[in-house]
Design a protein around this nucleic acid. Structure first.
Lengths: 149, 149
DNA sequence: CTACGAGTTGAAGCCAACTTGAGGTCAAGC
DNA sequence: GCTTGACCTCAAGTTGGCTTCAACTCGTAG
């Protein structure tokens, strides 16, 4: 009694049926048969979907996530990649913290206009110098956002 | 001697001419005339572009940023909105920190497969429960990423 | 005067990750 | 046997923030 049809998988995983079909189309998951037309899934797909969701949250693209599942069914994330991602995340976190603190400061700053606030001006300058300067560190990934978790 | 043509604005701001045209099209910036066909900009546009960049980095959409410039030319970010954004940023930061730490733990975890790592399983569970549970806090914004700064 | 190059326009394309829509199919319940 | 409703397929649409394209127009240097 183990096959689940797509509706049940959708309900239990929180992903919509269209998403599940999409994931199958791009090779992220596999259905193991049909009941009439309906895709049937092995319950293990739920774990896989959790892993996928986790990967998305961590900022991996679906393509990258797909690469983490080996040819066999087992999970296979190179530890070095994990560390790299964690480091990247750490850098991102630092930047966001700076930004957050600056925003708070500006919000509380008594200067009549934000433009008069020294902190705000400093922030502005740092932003524009990063762009105009075109330093080596300026990545251009435009990867989708770490979703709200 | 103050009008700058689009090429100069592009160079000084780091935004491409097409971006500048796009920004004008959507009403974010204004050109103040033409020299032949070429748009001419007031130098104040450079400050405005810095502000726009800052807004993007902070995670505001172009539409939201547009709303921050009053009918006059002055900047006008409600302090409450700033606080709200800062808070949101703070929550995001917290989540990312949890994620980062978990990733690091997993990367260093001696369990033969990640799936055996208790920390990993916990992380998985937290992700999937957030989805299936459909709590009130679960936003669905899919806003573009806070860019790399 | 003529070539050049930096601009112009409007429309179309791009990216990821899905969602939507039209028209069709099937198993189960009455 | 017939309805129902959940599924199917395939193609196209959505979102945001641009970029690219083709065909064109100017001001300026030579």
């Amino acid at each position: 009694m183990n096959m689940m049809d797509i509706g049940e998988v959708a309900m239990r995983s929180g992903a919509s049926p269209s998403t599940l079909r999409y994931y199958e189309e791009v090779g992220l998951i596999r259905s193991v048969g049909r009941h009439g037309l309906r895709r049937q899934f092995d319950p293990s797909v739920l774990l896989k979907l959790s892993l996928i969701e986790l990967g998305k949250v961590a900022g991996f693209s679906l393509g990258e996530i797909a690469g983490m599942f080996g040819d066999d069914e087992t999970l296979n994330i190179p530890r070095a990649d994990l560390h790299a991602k964690a480091d990247e995340l750490g850098r991102q976190i630092t930047k966001l913290r700076v930004l957050r603190d600056a925003m708070r400061h500006v919000a509380d700053c008594p200067a009549p206009s934000h433009l008069q606030c020294p902190s705000f001006r400093k922030l502005l300058k740092s932003v524009s110098s990063r762009k105009a300067g075109g330093r080596a560190g300026a990545r251009r990934t435009d990867r989708p956002p770490p979703k709200d978790v």
